[in-house]
């Protein structure tokens, strides 16, 4: 309950803060969501993607 009041007073009360935190959260969410889906994709397709077999064919660079 106190959390609800704290959240309201810090974020929701002023519209400028609200909108600003929405955009900031959207930015963070975009990055986090992308990396999350990528992590799932990579674990689901482990061993099938090019980055999983690339080390076999790359000649020692430098």
């Amino acid at each position: 309950m106190s959390f609800a009041i704290t959240a309201y007073n810090t974020i929701f009360k002023r519209n400028s803060v609200y909108v600003g935190s929405v955009f900031a959260a959207a930015f963070a969410f975009g990055i986090g969501f992308d990396s999350g889906v990528t992590a799932f994709w990579d674990s689901w397709n482990r061993g099938r993607q090019w980055k999983d077999i690339r080390h076999k064919y790359v000649q020692d660079e430098e």
Binding site: W41, N45, R48, Q49, W50, I53, Y57
Partner: peptide, 11 residues
């Protein structure tokens, strides 16, 4: 739905 190509097979 979630499956990528098997790139070793592509090679």
């Amino acid at each position: 739905f979630f499956d990528s190509f098997d790139h070793a097979s592509i090679r």
